[in-house]
């Protein structure tokens, strides 16, 4: 699953990006003049107060929303709608209840025109990767929240995207499951050689996973802050430097 061509694969360049929504007929700026370069294979975590536009940014990158102004380039080409180079993991697993785990994980590939047998073969690999090998024939109803989210992750990985977009993927999980899933995500990211862009409101999660943390400003048009997380992996949450990064992020929110 490693690519031989590591140059400009899953590289994102955002230039002067703006996006606003109409609220009661009046436009409300959500993103304004954002500039950002995301390196190939890095893990960028986006944090920000609610309303700072982090989910909107992710949806623009996914091609689910069109930008009002500015450009988003992926590997040099402008984003036009959804694309096979990207996969999205949502906060909810969004599994099709009438398909088994195997059917759900193979779904993405099948939709892209892969034959069922081949899609399921590859799906099995990724079901194993997320630790659900024994549950390939289970239906979503039979899974816990954490397991269901693993299925969603496996489905996204099965299409072997260059960029994995995660919108608060662990936000709905309990604290215990969340920590385990953070470890899983870190492992998957290191094994899959994929650019990972993740939105979260959990600052510890951000420090645990990110190469860089993007802090979106609350005041529109203000510069977004980028914080390098210069820590060895796997990361230790109790290490003083880890704690310092977390405090630094808290300060960004004016909370410390």
């Amino acid at each position: 699953m490693t690519s031989t061509d590591t140059t400009r694969r899953g590289e994102v360049s955002i230039r002067d990006l703006s996006k606003s929504f109409a609220i009661n007929g009046r436009p409300l700026a959500v993103l304004k003049g954002l500039n950002l370069d995301i390196r190939s294979g890095e893990c960028l975590v986006i944090v920000g107060a609610s309303g700072s536009g982090k989910t909107t940014l992710l949806r623009v990158l996914a091609g689910l929303e069109a930008a009002d102004g500015g450009r988003v380039l992926i590997d040099g080409a402008p984003v036009q709608g959804v694309g096979t180079d990207r996969a999205v993991i949502f906060q909810e697993p969004r599994l099709l209840p009438w398909l088994t785990v195997l059917g759900n994980v193979a779904f993405g590939l099948e939709v892209r025109g892969e034959q069922r047998a081949r899609a399921e073969e590859r799906a099995r690999d990724y079901i194993g990767l997320v630790g659900l090998g024994e549950f390939a024939d289970a239906y979503p109803k039979q899974l816990s929240g954490g397991m269901a989210q693993r299925v969603g992750i496996a489905r996204a990985l099965t299409v072997q995207p260059e960029i994995l977009l995660l919108d608060e993927p662990l936000g709905a999980l309990d604290a215990m499951t969340k920590i385990t899933m953070q470890e899983e995500l870190a492992r998957i990211w290191s094994e899959e050689n994929v650019t990972m862009i993740m939105v979260t409101h959990d600052l510890e999660e951000a420090v645990y996973l990110a190469d860089r943390v993007l802090v979106l400003p609350k005041e529109k048009g203000a510069a977004a802050r980028l914080i390098d997380i210069d820590l060895p992996r796997p990361r230790d949450r109790s290490e003083p430097r880890f704690v310092r990064y977390r405090e630094e992020l808290l300060r960004e929110f004016g909370l410390h």
Binding site: L64, V82, R86, R94, L96, W98, G108, V111, R112, V159
Partner: peptide
């Protein structure tokens, strides 16, 4: 039918027909 499921299918590049066949129809059964 949950619009979030339809959006999920779209993210994987499903055409309108595929969305109908694989998401809307089974969801409506």
């Amino acid at each position: 039918v949950d619009p979030k499921l339809i959006e999920m299918a779209r993210v994987y590049g499903a055409t309108r027909l595929t969305v109908f066949r694989r998401v809307v129809l089974p969801g409506a059964v």
